[in-house]
Design a protein around this nucleic acid. Structure first.
Ligand SMILES: [Mn+2]
Ligand SMILES: [Mn+2]
Ligand SMILES: [Zn+2]
Ligand SMILES: [Zn+2]
Lengths: 161, 161
DNA sequence: TATGTTATCGCCAATGTTTGCATTAACTGG
DNA sequence: CCAGTTAATGCAAACATTGGCGATAACATA
């Protein structure tokens, strides 16, 4: 059973209906690589199914996020989505200057989560966790070229074409 | 010299002009208690100065945030602002269920910041840091009454009316 | 105080996202 | 299969936030 089919079965098990629109959006996000913008998903969806509505894309992505099938990343002030890979979960660091998104291993947040629960009873939603800040390149003052290779470590990743 | 005057002088020292609109917004946010919604600021501002425009409120608050005079907190999917008290800086935990915001001492984030800088050269913007999650009350299943007293510790605080 | 420069304002339109509502179609049980 | 129930869709309008632009007013300078 593929990862798609698993997700779809999971949705169904929660009582959600399996519509062609949901099928389509899931497929697009899965194939689309990392951090797909909403409009990108919308365009591709409408290409395959011309009646697709933008509101449906938003609602579908929100649902997928809610149940954990996709991960939402706010880049700049736009929403982006990627498939939640259960094996390779990660959080995000978004540069407020160049607006690229980098992946962050969950490891770096474990103690933080434990502390919040122990001290305050507050269970942080780290599935949807994003820190903003300034990336190495932008801190160095050099505006990084659009297609620059910046992977210093294996949990760094380019976003936004 | 009051805290206002200090902030205003600081703005001026950065080359920004001291307009009555900025005066007004600063005053409103300062008096308004914690986590003021944009529309709330707008209404009060327009009451005092009928020509006040919503765009000006947004621009002013954005500027104030940029220079550190106010702190932005995203609650639900709306922006809220509070005065940045240099003595009592804090971050925020927002409950995704009851949508209340709680304060979090910077102490709990120090190691996290250090790690990100050391490991990735990524300087997180923790001035504007907010974690979402589920608060004690909502986790207990009990929908907390609107005016309930929930301060278990001295860095917990009610938000939103 | 008078004058020039230019940041900021008010107004309006655009954008990104959410919501209400009537219609459609996915599921359920027979 | 068939019909009934109700969640999900498409469409349109609302909402929250941002941006362009010409007019105004804050500040510097004399
Ligand atoms: Mn990612
Ligand atoms: Mn606060
Ligand atoms: Zn950057
Ligand atoms: Zn709560």
């Amino acid at each position: 059973m593929t990862s798609h089919e698993q997700s779809l079965q999971y949705l169904q098990s929660l009582g959600y209906r399996l519509t062609p629109q949901r099928l389509l959006v899931l497929e697009i996000v899965a194939e689309g690589g990392s951090h797909m913008g909403v409009d990108e998903v919308y365009r591709q969806a409408r290409a395959a199914y011309p009646y697709m509505d933008l509101a449906t894309v938003y609602r579908t992505l929100r649902l997928f996020k809610q149940v954990g099938v996709v991960t939402e990343v706010a880049i700049g002030n736009r929403l982006h989505y990627e498939l939640t890979d259960p094996g390779e979960k990660h959080h995000h660091m978004v540069c407020r200057d160049c607006h690229r998104a980098f992946n962050l291993s969950p490891h770096y947040l474990e103690e933080f989560r434990d502390t919040l629960i122990k001290e305050f009873g507050f269970a942080p939603d780290l599935e949807h966790f994003t820190v903003s800040g300034d990336c190495v390149d932008c801190r160095a003052g050099a505006a990084p070229a659009a297609g620059s290779t910046i992977n210093n470590a294996d949990n760094w990743e380019n976003a936004e074409s």
